[in-house]
Design a protein around this nucleic acid. Structure first.
Lengths: 198, 198
DNA sequence: TTGTGGAATTAACCTAGGTTAATTCCATCG
DNA sequence: CGATGGAATTAACCTAGGTTAATTCCACAA
């Protein structure tokens, strides 16, 4: 795995968001993580001070309630920025773990150093701002579906939004992503199947 | 209402987030909105290209589903930044309206001009970034309560998080904020009351 | 003082989704 | 090939919260 190549992947992903960023200030070493399917990048409760980039593969953000129930907050397919803004910024334990659903190539920087070195670059700040806006907007839209829509509606929306994941990941993760149990999802699928017969 | 004073309120709120921002580039005129209790600053579906600041008062973000059901996304007490990042950034219709629950003093700038004039200021960008991180983190935490916690738990949490609002705003808005009907909230309160009798 | 209208409560009933557990399906391994 | 174990399905039952509607409570206006 070529470290320099990976670093360039990160740069070009960022640059795609806007003008060219001047990366010369960045000297913090990049670290490479190869995470096999079902393995965790980090787990809920850890203090994560690194900034991650998923080059290839697929991960889910999973949080577990006190009663031991799993909830999939997000599904992310590379190449994308991943990790917990919250934990980095507030230096508090992450509210979710990140688990690979496919073998994944991930790199990371120490967030404090990364940010310290790049915060002087206006273009970088603008890009990062754009990124934050994007993930915020996604959360905002997702929030409303939980309150307004039925589980069936959420499942149908999921199938439209992630047609390729629909058959690629275990159904239980889809259920957990739309906030219901696998049993309930199975019931919904059954109902939909019947509905399609004329 | 002194326009210059209000503008200074906005500046000092922002400056409090970090280093001193150089506001000299900002020439876009500020606009003042006096919104009476129950009135709307803007309604769901409008295209909002302005950046708002709530100086004093209390507002709720309310979105209405296709079936006409109201849901209160957020409650904000001034002084705070309010409005829809999503609508400004994507120039799409807002997903919620903003309604005053108390008489409120609000000012605004044209977002495109505001951002155009301030994006060259690194300190401003950093502060805005901090703001985005903050609201994102809040959304992230709120998301998990909807999936993991019962309505009763959410109500109790609300009472702890907003002790002053608990008796200040109509109960139906609290219900709508925690994602249930007023009837269900009343039932929960009843149950809690009984529980407190020894 | 008495209306009047919106907010909250209460009760009766209904439904989506949770829970538990048995059953069936596969994919993988020996 | 058959055995094994996790994933999905199905069925039976339960519960939190929704729905509707009647009732009570108040704040405020006349």
């Amino acid at each position: 795995m070529d470290r320099v190549q990976l670093q360039n992947d990160v740069f070009s992903y960022f640059n795609r968001l806007g003008d060219e960023i001047d990366w010369r200030a960045l000297t913090t070493p990049i670290e490479v993580h190869l995470i096999a399917k079902t393995q965790y990048l980090f787990r809920q409760g850890e203090c994560v001070d690194r900034w991650y980039f998923l080059h290839s593969g697929l991960v889910r953000y999973v949080s577990v309630s006190d009663e031991g129930k799993e909830f999939t907050q997000t599904l992310v397919k590379g190449p994308k920025i991943i990790g917990s803004t919250r934990s980095m910024v507030t230096t508090s334990p992450v509210l979710f773990g990140i688990q690979a659903l496919e073998d994944s190539v991930i790199t990371s920087y120490n967030w404090a150093e990364f940010y310290q070195q790049m915060r002087h670059d206006k273009v970088f700040l603008e890009c990062y701002l754009l990124f934050l806006e994007t993930i915020f907007i996604a959360k905002e839209e997702r929030e409303s579906t939980f309150v307004k829509d039925s589980a069936e509606r959420r499942y149908l929306d999921f199938c439209v939004a992630y047609p390729e994941l629909k058959d690629q990941i275990p159904q239980q993760y889809i259920a957990s992503y739309i906030g219901i149990t696998p049993v309930a999802l199975s019931r919904i699928r059954q109902k939909l199947k019947l509905g399609h017969r004329p």
